[in-house]
Simulated assay, not measured.
Amino acid sequence: MYRIAVLGEYDSIYGFATLGLETFPVSDAEQGSTQLRRLAESGYAVIYVTESMAEQIKKEIERYKTQMLPAIILIPGVSGNTSAGINGVKKSVEQAVGSDILFSGN
């Protein structure tokens, strides 16, 4: 059975534990990179990462872009939404279907 993890700043992720997800609070880029690597190597299928932490560990996240698992999904944190998460999903959909499905020709 696959597991789901949430990685980021404590204040942004602690609520996910009430949903039954495993949370991994980190406070800096070094901790974030190390923890992401551990989670990926431990068989987590989905890893949610706060947008602010993802900004700090871009190189580590890039290592997993071409792999089936884990799926790394960016989520907003308490510091707000940077649109990085939605832009990443939009780009993935564009690659999968060959066009921007959100484009309005009006």
Rank of each mutant, 00 (worst) to 15 (best):
residue 78 V to W: 00
residue 78 V to S: 10
residue 1 M to I: 02
residue 40 A to Y: 08
residue 32 G to V: 11
residue 82 T to I: 03
residue 38 R to V: 15
residue 20 G to W: 06
residue 9 E to P: 00
residue 96 A to G: 06
residue 105 G to F: 09
residue 58 K to M: 10
residue 37 R to G: 03
residue 38 R to N: 14
residue 18 T to L: 15
residue 95 Q to S: 11
residue 5 A to D: 15
residue 48 Y to D: 06
residue 10 Y to M: 05
residue 96 A to T: 08
residue 72 I to A: 01
residue 27 S to V: 14
residue 77 G to H: 01
residue 89 V to S: 09
residue 98 G to A: 05
residue 78 V to I: 07
residue 28 D to H: 09
residue 67 Q to F: 00
residue 63 R to F: 02
residue 44 Y to A: 00
residue 96 A to P: 10
residue 92 S to V: 08
residue 98 G to W: 00
residue 80 G to E: 04
residue 92 S to R: 13
residue 3 R to E: 14
residue 71 A to S: 10
residue 38 R to H: 12
residue 16 F to W: 04
residue 75 I to M: 07
residue 102 L to A: 10
residue 81 N to V: 05
residue 8 G to S: 03
residue 76 P to G: 03
residue 52 S to I: 07
residue 74 L to F: 03
residue 103 F to T: 11
residue 77 G to D: 03
residue 33 S to A: 15
residue 6 V to I: 10
residue 17 A to F: 08
residue 37 R to M: 12
residue 54 A to F: 06
residue 61 I to C: 08
residue 72 I to Q: 00
residue 28 D to L: 03
residue 56 Q to M: 13
residue 19 L to G: 12
residue 9 E to H: 05
residue 30 E to K: 14
residue 71 A to N: 03
residue 22 E to T: 05
residue 96 A to Y: 04
residue 21 L to H: 05
residue 51 E to S: 04
residue 17 A to H: 11
residue 25 P to K: 01
residue 84 A to E: 12
residue 106 N to L: 15
residue 70 P to K: 04
residue 57 I to M: 11
residue 76 P to L: 02
residue 99 S to V: 14
residue 95 Q to F: 02
residue 58 K to R: 15
residue 48 Y to A: 06
residue 85 G to C: 08
residue 105 G to M: 11
residue 52 S to Y: 11
residue 34 T to G: 12
residue 59 K to N: 15
residue 26 V to H: 02
residue 29 A to P: 13
residue 4 I to P: 04
residue 31 Q to F: 09
residue 48 Y to V: 00
residue 23 T to E: 10
residue 47 I to M: 08
residue 63 R to D: 09
residue 19 L to F: 05
residue 53 M to A: 06
residue 97 V to Y: 06
residue 101 I to E: 01
residue 64 Y to V: 00
residue 38 R to P: 12
residue 56 Q to D: 12
residue 41 E to M: 01
